[in-house]
Amino acid sequence: MNAIPSPDSLSTPTTDSTPSQCAPHVSIAGVTKVFNGRKGRVQALEPVDLDIRRGEFVSILGPSGCGKSTLMMLLSGLLPSSSGRITVDGKEITAPNPEAGIVFQKDVLLEWRSALENVMIQAEIRKSDKAEAKSRAMELLSMVSLDDFHDAYPSELSGGMRQRVSICRALLHKPPLMLMDEPFGALDAMTRDQLQLDLLKLCRDDDMTVFFITHSIPEAIFLSDRVVVMTPRPGRIERIVNIDLPRPRRLAMREDPKFIEYVHELTGIFKSLGVFREE
């Protein structure tokens, strides 16, 4: 438990401990992961090296089973790496990092709590100031148009609403680093578009680094500053594509020739990796 933040570092995470401008926010150096399963050793990740700047939106794009979720688990400290070193703000991650905010593909809402209480669990566990947390929770919920639903139980919410609540929960403590594992993977296409817009809105104000895992090429391009392409198992970084599209992103940009060019480029990479096979 070396990474429990002090109460004031929760509200202003970057002021006192800001590293020098060029130092990356997140640094992954030679990180591997080997699982010892029943069928013997499975190499989930080959050595991965990646630096992420503060405030950057990075998507990890790859087919199922390429170890991208594993990479996120390593980054959150929930799973130990087999070798290599992960640092966040210069601190090595060896235990769950409570400064990060996490969103899984499943919303993992607590069925016995209302939407607001689900967001508030974050504050309860961290024992932060209740009143302040509550007003922030309400603010977050209203940013994703859920103000009228703060009293509703998860069973009364649709899939998209539930995932929005879970994003608000992850954002409550203003995490400097947001880890998202295919958060929109289980949603229908239209809800997905809306949630992408919501996410960008939520990220815009804070100087937050986002590590976003997806297997959707357009989603990765639409959201990110950089798209990291991973190969099928064992996972390794194949290519990093910089997305040079203006912000704020608009839905119309998806018809932009530049956007379409990125889609072609990334599709091409996956074709060359054998992920897509055409006759």
Partner: peptide, 28 residues
């Protein structure tokens, strides 16, 4: 679920909090 326990740990919940705020209400 595994995710629920992951979530609790990612918030820095200790075992008592994990039991009291996650496992027990889930089991009710």
């Amino acid at each position: 679920s595994e995710e629920m326990i992951h979530l609790a740990r990612s918030m820095g919940a200790n075992s008592w909090q994990t039991f009291w705020k996650f496992r027990l209400p889930h089991a009710l």
